[in-house]
Design a protein around this nucleic acid. Sequence first.
DNA 1: CCTTGACCCTCCAGTGACTGGAAGCCTTAT
DNA 2: ATAAGGCTTCCAGTCACTGGAGGGTCAAGG
Lengths: 130, 130
Amino acid sequence: MNIGDVAAKSGLPAKTIRYYEDIGLIRPARTESGYRTFSDSDLHKLTFLARARALGFSIEDCRTLLALYEDESRASADVKKLAEEHLEQIDAKLRQLQSMRDTLSHLVHACHGDDRPDCPILSDLATGAE
Amino acid sequence: MNIGDVAAKSGLPAKTIRYYEDIGLIRPARTESGYRTFSDSDLHKLTFLARARALGFSIEDCRTLLALYEDESRASADVKKLAEEHLEQIDAKLRQLQSMRDTLSHLVHACHGDDRPDCPILSDLATGAE
DNA sequence: CCTTGACCCTCCAGTGACTGGAAGCCTTAT
DNA sequence: ATAAGGCTTCCAGTCACTGGAGGGTCAAGG
């Protein structure tokens, strides 16, 4: 398969697939003329990567996950540990976003939003008052 | 005030303050020897920026907010509109994160996490099955 | 007056994970 | 034979900083 085919099948842009090769996540073969040639195994890895990225794993996490995926004798505890750490990061981010949302939502509701200049959003940003 | 003083007072790193000057958010004066000199008004703007950034507004949003802040004849509706758009972005991000969290949490619970290689997390990443 | 140490300056490079675009080969169909 | 579309590499840009090198400035103590 050429890069366009695996791009369509994995859902990843061709540019991203080239980038993944650059940073050593995959190693597709090449034709004599230099075209990349992807095996089924390459496609599997790309699909794996697309899913892991969609779950928010970093590229370095993905590298580790891919290595564990390829290691027939891995311990599932290793994978679980990585996933749990990532879950904690997601939870932290969720808490932070939620707190931002609460503050902003409060400000938006306090602002009458007409053509007068008086605006609680700006005065809060300026003074830090609640 | 020198940059260290406003850094301490605004909570922003000096590097970040220099960067904000670079991109034209603030225009501190200079001494003859080249040191930046910050007025109270500069400090207010930096504090404003720090708060807006903490609420997740992008730099370009901050530029607009700062312009509105300085415009005595602004309409509060303009500010509210920007804040509402940003709130929607936050909500979208929250939904996406929550969905990631749900999937990952499900996978983590399904994995026994021992020293055997069998791992639902990896097999889900590989196949996309629920 | 000199030194020391804390502070300040600019400039360059790197982060993460791509994305866009230019310039030019390769393949396939007409 | 040619045209279209796909492929290649390489360079630059994104966002919002951050780190570090190499050097100037300032205030205090000896």
